[in-house]
Amino acid sequence: MDALKSAGRALIRSPSLAKQSWGGGGRHRKLPENWTDTRETLLEGMLFSLKYLGMTLVEQPKGEELSAAAIKRIVATAKASGKKLQKVTLKVSPRGIILTDNLTNQLIENVSIYRISYCTADKMHDKVFAYIAQSQHNQSLECHAFLCTKRKMAQAVTLTVAQAFKVAFEFWQVSKEEKEKRDKASQEGGDVLGARQDCTPPLKSLVATGNLLDLEETAKAPLSTVSANTTNMDEVPRPQALSGSSVVWELDDGLDEAFSRLAQSRTNPQVLDTGLTAQDMHYAQCLSPVDWDKPDSSGTEQDDLFSF
């Protein structure tokens, strides 16, 4: 819950932080000083300027060897085509990944977070970031790969997607708890209302004896509580940590079903599988986004697919 609360507080303090972009060759504004600060901008989305290598189908939802083989196929196909790589912007948030063309600003792909089953910074092609997700059109699994400016960037994108998945799962947990509370309150309110109706004398007997209905007592009954809980029953509950912020979080049926399955089948359902080692994760978390744009010590960066 700490990640969720800190993310909400950060967004309320400075929503404009989320509009910064990394990996864009110096076009961005001043960047936060450390990885923790940038992680807090996830709610509205972190932007990464990358190059799209392509996509291939895979048979399993996750796995280092599986993704490595898929990336190898994608890279080989991209090299064989001889075409310049498409420059894209990857927007990562707890909602998922939005992929747009840098030149036309046209939407290429919009992947809900619950469809993503794996992401990684490839070991062999260490400047490549990739994720595996279920197609929104059918049940097939797709591996999408992107060329980053350097290994640090690939690791940073991988960690960002993993963190977005974690925050999304926490949102789901909060929403589920809130819905259970509202359902319980609604049920209790309905029981109270039913009890009051059972003990209320029939209207005919009131008229016969000349008694008047006590409207004041009726007004004191917990009807307002019942209506408050039943009027918006169809509205999706939102985490309290975000009250007053500009973010509107809505959970669709697909996300609810997917996270429910994860909660039942996995020990740590909030953790998205990645190909990063503990050492890689520690190294990337210690980086400032400013470091992502620094040239690798191995030599001059080449803006070309064939540089790796």
Rank of each mutant, 00 (worst) to 15 (best):
residue 113 I to G: 00
residue 146 F to W: 08
residue 219 A to D: 11
residue 27 R to N: 06
residue 254 G to T: 00
residue 17 L to F: 04
residue 117 S to C: 04
residue 273 D to E: 13
residue 205 S to M: 10
residue 294 K to I: 12
residue 207 V to E: 13
residue 37 D to G: 05
residue 167 V to R: 09
residue 220 K to L: 10
residue 58 V to Q: 12
residue 109 E to A: 08
residue 30 K to H: 08
residue 261 R to C: 03
residue 46 M to R: 10
residue 271 V to E: 03
residue 181 K to Y: 13
residue 226 V to W: 04
residue 177 E to P: 09
residue 272 L to K: 06
residue 193 L to D: 10
residue 80 A to R: 10
residue 133 A to F: 02
residue 237 P to F: 05
residue 267 T to D: 07
residue 110 N to I: 05
residue 272 L to A: 01
residue 211 N to C: 09
residue 236 V to R: 03
residue 277 T to W: 00
residue 170 E to M: 11
residue 70 A to H: 13
residue 272 L to C: 06
residue 138 N to L: 14
residue 274 T to R: 01
residue 305 L to R: 14
residue 209 T to A: 07
residue 12 I to R: 15
residue 163 Q to L: 03
residue 16 S to K: 09
residue 267 T to L: 03
residue 165 F to H: 05
residue 99 L to K: 05
residue 66 L to K: 10
residue 53 L to N: 07
residue 22 W to A: 11
residue 223 L to I: 11
residue 274 T to Q: 02
residue 195 A to H: 11
residue 275 G to P: 05
residue 20 Q to G: 15
residue 188 E to K: 11
residue 86 Q to N: 12
residue 6 S to F: 11
residue 130 A to V: 08
residue 219 A to Y: 10
residue 20 Q to C: 11
residue 58 V to S: 14
residue 55 M to K: 02
residue 178 E to G: 14
residue 31 L to V: 12
residue 201 P to Y: 07
residue 188 E to F: 03
residue 278 A to D: 09
residue 236 V to W: 02
residue 164 A to M: 01
residue 71 I to L: 13
residue 269 P to W: 01
residue 231 T to V: 12
residue 162 A to Y: 04
residue 76 A to L: 07
residue 274 T to A: 02
residue 157 V to Q: 06
residue 129 F to G: 15
residue 131 Y to A: 14
residue 144 H to S: 14
residue 198 D to I: 07
residue 48 F to L: 06
residue 94 P to N: 09
residue 93 S to V: 06
residue 5 K to C: 06
residue 253 D to A: 02
residue 137 H to T: 07
residue 302 Q to I: 14
residue 178 E to M: 03
residue 185 A to F: 01
residue 259 F to Y: 03
residue 268 N to E: 00
residue 268 N to R: 09
residue 81 S to N: 10
residue 26 G to P: 10
residue 62 K to G: 03
residue 47 L to H: 13
residue 230 T to D: 09
residue 51 K to C: 11
residue 237 P to A: 03
residue 241 A to F: 09
residue 43 L to Q: 08
residue 181 K to Q: 02
residue 287 L to Y: 00
residue 23 G to H: 07
residue 167 V to Y: 02
residue 151 R to D: 05
residue 161 V to P: 02
residue 22 W to I: 10
residue 17 L to E: 14
residue 285 Q to S: 00
residue 238 R to P: 02
residue 199 C to Q: 14
residue 104 T to M: 00
residue 306 F to Q: 05
residue 276 L to N: 04
residue 3 A to M: 12
residue 48 F to P: 10
residue 92 V to L: 11
residue 262 L to E: 02
residue 100 T to G: 14
residue 44 E to A: 13
residue 183 D to I: 06
residue 57 L to R: 13
residue 83 K to C: 04
residue 243 S to T: 07
residue 275 G to E: 01
residue 235 E to T: 13
residue 63 G to M: 12
residue 191 D to E: 15
residue 174 V to W: 00
residue 130 A to P: 04
residue 284 A to D: 08
residue 151 R to V: 01
residue 195 A to Y: 05
residue 190 G to A: 13
residue 294 K to G: 04
residue 304 D to K: 07
residue 175 S to K: 02
residue 238 R to V: 05
residue 123 K to P: 07
residue 170 E to W: 10
residue 55 M to F: 13
residue 203 L to Q: 02
residue 298 S to A: 10
residue 184 K to S: 11
residue 243 S to K: 07
residue 85 L to Y: 12
residue 305 L to C: 08
residue 105 N to Y: 04
residue 173 Q to E: 02
residue 160 T to D: 03
residue 136 Q to M: 13
residue 218 T to L: 14
residue 46 M to V: 15
residue 143 C to W: 15
residue 25 G to I: 07
residue 24 G to W: 14
residue 20 Q to E: 15
residue 22 W to F: 15
residue 278 A to R: 06
residue 173 Q to F: 11
residue 37 D to T: 09
residue 272 L to P: 01
residue 215 L to S: 05
residue 54 G to R: 05
residue 152 K to R: 02
residue 12 I to F: 11
residue 136 Q to E: 14
residue 72 K to C: 11
residue 177 E to V: 13
residue 264 Q to W: 07
residue 211 N to H: 05
residue 66 L to V: 02
residue 94 P to I: 07
residue 228 A to I: 08
residue 216 E to V: 10
residue 128 V to F: 14
residue 89 T to L: 09
residue 222 P to A: 09
residue 191 D to K: 02
residue 302 Q to R: 02
residue 99 L to R: 13
residue 224 S to Q: 03
residue 235 E to K: 06
residue 242 L to Y: 05
residue 50 L to Q: 04
residue 94 P to Y: 09
residue 135 S to K: 10
residue 73 R to T: 10
residue 134 Q to S: 08
residue 195 A to E: 08
residue 228 A to W: 02
residue 245 S to L: 02
residue 166 K to C: 14
residue 304 D to Y: 09
residue 73 R to D: 13
residue 139 Q to L: 14
residue 221 A to S: 06
residue 162 A to V: 14
residue 288 S to T: 00
residue 90 L to G: 15
residue 294 K to L: 04
residue 196 R to D: 09
residue 142 E to M: 10
residue 97 I to F: 04
residue 95 R to V: 11
residue 28 H to W: 14
residue 296 D to L: 09
residue 56 T to H: 07
residue 126 D to R: 07
residue 234 D to K: 06
residue 266 R to I: 09
residue 302 Q to S: 09
residue 277 T to K: 04
residue 133 A to V: 05
residue 154 A to W: 03
residue 72 K to G: 06
residue 17 L to V: 13
residue 82 G to K: 04
residue 24 G to E: 06
residue 160 T to N: 09
residue 189 G to Y: 04
residue 263 A to P: 01
residue 284 A to I: 01
residue 250 E to K: 09
residue 227 S to A: 07
residue 154 A to S: 14
residue 56 T to Q: 10
residue 299 G to L: 03
residue 39 R to K: 04
residue 191 D to L: 12
